Amino acid sequence: MPLLMAFRRYWAFVFFAVLTLPTFGLVLPDLPAPARTVIEPEAHWWERAAERLDPWINNVFGFRGAVLVAHGTYEKWLGTTGSRRVLVGEKGQLFIKDQQALEQSVGQLVRPAMVRELADVATMLDAEMRRLGGTFVMFVPPNGATVNYELLPEYARNRRTSPTEYDLLRDEMKARGLAFVDVRPVIQAGKAGGPVQFLLDSHWNHRGSLLAYNAVMAAVGRLDLAVDPADAIGPPRPNMRGDLLRIMGSTKPDFPDVVYPLKAPYDGRQNLTPIEGVMPAADPKDPFPPHAQETGRPGPRVMLIGDSYTQHFWSGYLAQRTSAFAWMHHRNCRFDLNAVDRFKPDILIFAPSERFMPCRGAPERNPPPAAATPPRVSP
């Protein structure tokens, strides 16, 4: 008897094709999907694969956008509240639940050891800047659930306790004598003038971003680097897009969001000169490529170690207020520490967002890129 009967051989080809689809999906066009937050497996992932490898697989599998949209559409058809990664609050406000952000914001998740580990990294960066003769400051962009706590469902509001991890970090930094800006009060106060957080997206909007930017510049004693909101931010207009909406698999929200567009020249269309040989080489698929650029303007050299809350939101401000600025992702504390020494900033800002505060390693000291050339001198 043949191992695989003739009428079943065609099905074998079908099954093989289905199994290879994810591989083709790595290179074929896909639907838009949330930005990848994990770009490589953790070290020694084979020791605890379910914990260390799964986050990477969830970020890189083929046809990721199509699968997430299909999954969200199916859940919505079933009448659920949407993706398990998204919480629907009052007035249509969406909240991200990844990394236990909700529990973190309401004080149900408190990890003192994690806070101390993050403060250790801040201590290291402060010492690096003292050696270079510059200024160090840290701030943490808050979760949406921290900013718009009043829009959480009632059951979540009733679970709120203190202190939160954000509170512990603020107190730990103060105890160590390190510069730390708690931007929560200024952002909360800013809500009186309009939204500071997107409705359909996990990030703050340009109003909230600029309020935090000005608070940080005031804390380092550089009011000359502040940006007047009237000069930088245009009138609000409706917006129907957002990363949380995409995660839910929805293409049309029940309520429109509000976006405050940036005005020129703060809208990111400046002519900048890349500084080579400073930042580590990045994978072309990395959604968070590091960069260092000269602006051709007078001002200090500013370096920012952050994530998506500052990657694009702050670039227009820094391009108008600095002679050179650099940005790189914190990579959960595994950033290249030598890049700080190569760039030699006057001001170093460490800004991991609230739900990405936990470290998954220590800063690394990597050599400059192989094709490095001497940095270009500002005119």
Results as ranks from 00 to 15, higher is better:
Pro112Leu: 03
Glu128Thr: 04
Pro379Tyr: 07
Cys359Trp: 00
Leu223Asp: 14
Arg48Tyr: 09
Arg355His: 02
Gln293Asp: 07
Gly296Phe: 05
Lys174Gln: 14
Asn332Tyr: 13
Pro29Asp: 11
Arg241Ile: 08
Gly134Lys: 05
Gly194Val: 10
Ala179Glu: 01
Val216Gln: 02
Pro298Gly: 07
Leu152Cys: 07
Arg355Phe: 00
Pro163Val: 03
Val278Leu: 05
Pro374Trp: 03
Glu364Gln: 15
Ala226Val: 12
Arg342Ala: 11
Leu151Ile: 01
Arg116His: 04
His206Thr: 12
Trp77Cys: 05
Ile39Glu: 13
Gln100Lys: 10
Arg9Trp: 03
Ala49His: 07
Asp98Lys: 14
Arg52Gln: 08
Val259Met: 10
Ala372Gly: 09
Ser83Met: 00
Pro238Asn: 09
Lys191Arg: 15
Val69Asp: 14
Ala49Gly: 08
Val196Lys: 06
Ala127Val: 13
Ala215Val: 09
Pro41Glu: 10
Val147Tyr: 00
Leu132His: 05
Phe63Gln: 02
Pro379Ile: 13
Val121His: 01
Leu245Pro: 04
Ala35Asp: 15
Ile275Glu: 00
Leu178Asp: 14
Pro153Thr: 06
Ala101Leu: 09
Gly92Phe: 04
Tyr317Val: 02
Ala230Phe: 03
Val278Met: 07
Arg130Ala: 00
Gly62Thr: 10
Leu223Tyr: 06
Leu118Ala: 11
Pro163Ile: 06
Arg160Tyr: 08
Pro290Leu: 04
Arg52Cys: 03
Arg269Pro: 02
Asp254Met: 03
Leu125Tyr: 02
Asp54Tyr: 12
Leu28Trp: 13
Ala127Ile: 10
Ala156Arg: 06
Pro358Asn: 08
Arg159Glu: 13
Ile349Ala: 00
Ala370Ile: 15
Val110Asp: 06
Glu276Met: 13
Met173Ser: 02
Leu211Phe: 13
Phe343Cys: 00
Arg64His: 08
Thr23Cys: 05
Ala189Ile: 05
Asp54Gly: 03
Gly72Ile: 01
Trp56Lys: 05
Ala175Val: 12
Leu31Asp: 15
His329Cys: 10
Glu117Asp: 15
Met279His: 03
Gly316Arg: 01
Met129Gly: 11
Thr373Gln: 15
Cys359His: 02
Arg131Gln: 10
Phe95Val: 11
Val14Asn: 04
Leu118Ile: 11
